[in-house]
Design a protein around this nucleic acid. Structure first.
Lengths: 234, 234
DNA sequence: TAAATAGTGTCTATAAGACAATATTAA
DNA sequence: TTAATATTGTCTTATAGACACTATTTA
């Protein structure tokens, strides 16, 4: 269709929302931040946090705003996940939703924000059906997070500001659902340039010999990557 | 904001469009499909092809439809690239655009489609400023395509149905802007399970010893990947 | 002391990169 | 024949994965 010729039928009114897949690692499980809906449709059902994009703000800004409202924290990693635009995904009207993925450390407790509905961290393995197409969006977010750990330093986003190699390894083990050799993992991550910055401190919070504490480094990519080998068909 | 409470101020009307980054490799260059705008704003300026999402179709379907209209071809690889939603990206009204990346073989000539404006393949290195925020979208699309070649078999999408290893290698060289060792590349791609299916035929269209012809295999990922080593800081 | 976790070293297999050598065609 | 491109093989180096071993703490 010709761009530039505008007639009312060209732009049927859409509502645009943002939905957030906020993931954290807590209690040995990958958890998503969910809210319980207080209104129809899907009243009482779990859903992803989110809301309408306002006229004066960009879609990305709306995501940042909603994330702050839901978690009470700013500065978390936030990236676009995808846009979901099936005609009947919201039974009431045509809503196009831009989904975002956020990775968070183990935050004390979800803040209900301006929303009166309950918010909770739910292990992704225990998430049943969700409102709208949110189950699909959550799945896509989890898969994106898993892939991101391979070639970016984002695993550290799940950790507190200072963390040990073992804590980072547990993030990988929980998100990927595998177990990793502690010794090879240690050699690998401490060998990647710019990934970890030693603080000089150490902690014995995991028991045993105290472990060195690190902060996130400035590396934007993890090279060579930490690959999950695909399942081989024998 | 509470999902489920709808009031007019909650959903200011947005228009939703799709924009297409359609890339091909031709004449030793990575080229993008661009259209020249026939109307204000940005009249006479190059822009990405695209158009409005209709009420009854999904956003993804709108992208497929527009791609067919612009190229006259269906079945091309098409994936979401990202959503661009700055408030003033279109000077006339609030438009949120969902961008898609399509990879195409060297199609004979762009079809103007239902659009009267001229369409053309333009080498991405020669693209100047574009209408709206399309230069940024194109950049993102090119970078996505470059990254995709590393760990997916999508390089073959730029090739005709039957192609030689050298033709596939030239795709990588042109898209990445590097030169690759023909012998190592050959060993690599013929060694990846499910990437290339030999047709049994061969061709001498490149001169010299005839090369075996292959079709795309069924592999969805390229493992191990064909990595571009990042530039090392010495 | 034992138990637990942290960290280093060593070996092997795989794969990437450099590049020699051979193969098969056209001019 | 020479020139051009295709394909195979060989060597070196980097890295992943398995796992022995040492180090440092608490109980």
């Amino acid at each position: 269709m010709l761009r530039g010729v505008y007639s009312p039928s060209d732009f049927p009114p859409f509502a645009v929302t943002v939905d957030l897949v906020v993931l954290t690692v807590r209690a040995d499980a990958l958890c998503a931040l969910l809210v319980r809906r207080g209104e129809a449709p899907f009243r009482g059902r779990w859903a992803l946090p989110g809301g309408f994009v306002q006229v004066a703000e960009s879609v990305d800004d709306a995501a940042v705003r909603e994330l702050g409202e839901e978690t009470g924290v700013s500065g978390l990693h936030l990236e676009q996940l995808g846009t979901y635009g099936e005609p009947r995904r919201d039974p009431r009207m045509r809503v196009v939703s831009v989904a975002y993925l956020a990775l968070a450390p183990d935050l004390p407790v979800p803040v209900a924000g301006t929303d009166a509905a309950a918010a909770s961290w739910v292990p992704v393995s225990e998430v049943g059906s969700l409102a709208f197409d949110h189950a699909r969006i959550l799945e896509d977010g989890v898969e994106r997070a898993r892939a991101k750990l391979e070639y970016t330093p984002l695993g550290a986003e799940f950790c507190p500001a200072e963390f040990t190699v073992a804590e980072l390894r547990r993030v990988y083990e929980i998100v990927w659902g595998v177990s990793l050799d502690a010794r090879n993992f240690h050699r690998k991550v401490t060998g990647v340039e710019g990934l970890l910055v030693p603080t000089g401190e150490s902690t014995a919070r995991d028991g045993g010999r105290p472990a060195a504490l690190y902060r996130r480094g400035s590396a934007a990519v993890l090279y060579p990557p930490l690959v999950r080998a695909p399942v081989q068909s024998p």
